[in-house]
Write a protein that binds this DNA or RNA. Sequence first.
DNA 1: TTGTACGCGTTATCAT
DNA 2: ATGATAACGCGTACAA
Lengths: 338, 338
Amino acid sequence: MVNIKDVAKLAGVAPITVSRVINHSGSVNPATRERVQRAINELHYVPNTLAQSLRSKQTHTIALLLSDITNPFWTTIARGVEDAAAEKGFHTILCNTDEDPEKEATYLNLLLQRRVDGIVIAPTTNDKLRLTALKRHQLPCVLIDRRVDGFKSDVVCGDNRGGAELLTEHLIRLGHRQIALVSGPHSISSAEERAEGYRAALRKHRIPIEESLIFRGEFKQDSGYQLVKRLLERDPRPTAIFAANNLIAVGALQALREIGLRVPEDIALVCFDDIPYASAIEPFLTVVAQPAYEMGRTAAGLLMERLAATRNIRTREVVLAPELVVRQSCGQMHHTTV
Amino acid sequence: MVNIKDVAKLAGVAPITVSRVINHSGSVNPATRERVQRAINELHYVPNTLAQSLRSKQTHTIALLLSDITNPFWTTIARGVEDAAAEKGFHTILCNTDEDPEKEATYLNLLLQRRVDGIVIAPTTNDKLRLTALKRHQLPCVLIDRRVDGFKSDVVCGDNRGGAELLTEHLIRLGHRQIALVSGPHSISSAEERAEGYRAALRKHRIPIEESLIFRGEFKQDSGYQLVKRLLERDPRPTAIFAANNLIAVGALQALREIGLRVPEDIALVCFDDIPYASAIEPFLTVVAQPAYEMGRTAAGLLMERLAATRNIRTREVVLAPELVVRQSCGQMHHTTV
DNA sequence: TTGTACGCGTTATCAT
DNA sequence: ATGATAACGCGTACAA
């Protein structure tokens, strides 16, 4: 494969001059640049990023670890990260952890090997163990959507507690008292915070908190399906369900449909995070939508500030307000920002 | 950052011996291996992939170029590609072209620079121009979901013509005669083939083809929305709509909802490619679903066979049969394989 | 403005 | 089973 030397030879210059042309660095005589450029075109020369990075110790690459590339909430975040990174000349590597700590650990190792410049991660658990390797190798890191106990780093997330409270109050205001919560694992901070918001809303309205109405599983469709099936056997049956994320809600819809219950006529259903294409497909589902794209942009922004900085920066925390999207019936829609 | 020499020094061996240990290549005395491994752990050594690839001329990386990472059809393909690649020890880089030929060209260039070992691509147009650079650099390539005129390479796609015919016949069998088609651009082979299938079905049943019922736009939600809005103004109004992909169908639903038309009571709607979480959310939409995950796996498989081969392989074409998923009402479901 | 010498971290090749 | 040497393709540091 043709390399920088070949180009240099053809252009009658030293390799370093070619380097200066392709990197727009140093100063090159316009006439020389022209000759070099012609040689590049003639030989179809493509610079080798591997060698560039090896030498310069910068890959201009960041990584994004998220739990499910099939869930539009995460891919919207991914787009935000990608766009912000691309604007600064950085490429983004996407990694699917599937909520599996082992996969996460494997990817982190892979990324260290690839010498990425930084990482944006939605950790699978709030255990900082797997992240210590990053600290050791001084790899800049931004947490997105989820916190990790005792791990010092930048964080970008939504107001989970506030959003959950808002959503629960919405149900209460509609007259519901038997509100079931279907949330994610205890080891994920967002699941915890959303559960807290739920409890806070009930307390605020002096509704007794019944532990038998609180279900904890995974942030997955199947988990939502299974838990809602169990939940519907309860006597008395809850009149409303609060799904702590969109996939749980989809699983819930599936379970309700099987039982033959309609939303919202027979039972209310609300959820955290918008459902893909919900406005077109399922107009009856009130949700708290997070500004996913902005979250991604913000996280990448913080990361790249850190990469550009010459000295250490204090760690920062950005909490973005979610939006309550009330969908009552066709055409009627009401937005409120928290 | 600690490198292979540091490890070698601590273990009292030559760097190449460390190399043999980390790559499980050559043969190493168990005792030596043990000493090396201990040194690796002690120093927290992480091999530098850049240097490895530079020297070995293999990145163990393939790229997947697709049009929209937010569309679960594509991300499901992505999962198939990733999984198959990972099984062979390859990493996958995902690139979003957004159906934009310029973005595609930019990514192709980036990937050449990164010296990826091969590419799976859903091209944005059927113009082979942008792909010639791959040929020139002898970069193995597999087309997925879409063909490119005159470009010789492996291809994995669904039976677009057959699937579209099936879907159209389904509508005809339900009694529809005024069936509108909303398809994608002429420059994308799948859009063309689906339109052909539609026409073929009408011909077969001796229904006159009315050009005023055929709408061509983009494979995007907004395009579907706009075209269906226009389509509904037609007099007489079509009794059924065939959306040529899932995003067009979502846009169609949105438009129908605004007008106040219900599916399937007031107008029929079918589409190519399943709608995300459709079974849970929108149980009335009959679709032709492609085996996206399998398509991804197959494409990656062909690519990696090519990478593993020592000599040239003839180009291959795999056409996977789509599945007609008839969703008439809650709980009733009927599957037929083409 | 341009060039020389060297090193980035690793592995291919050949030798022992 | 282990090692010495060179090379992969490029950019830094310094010199001219």
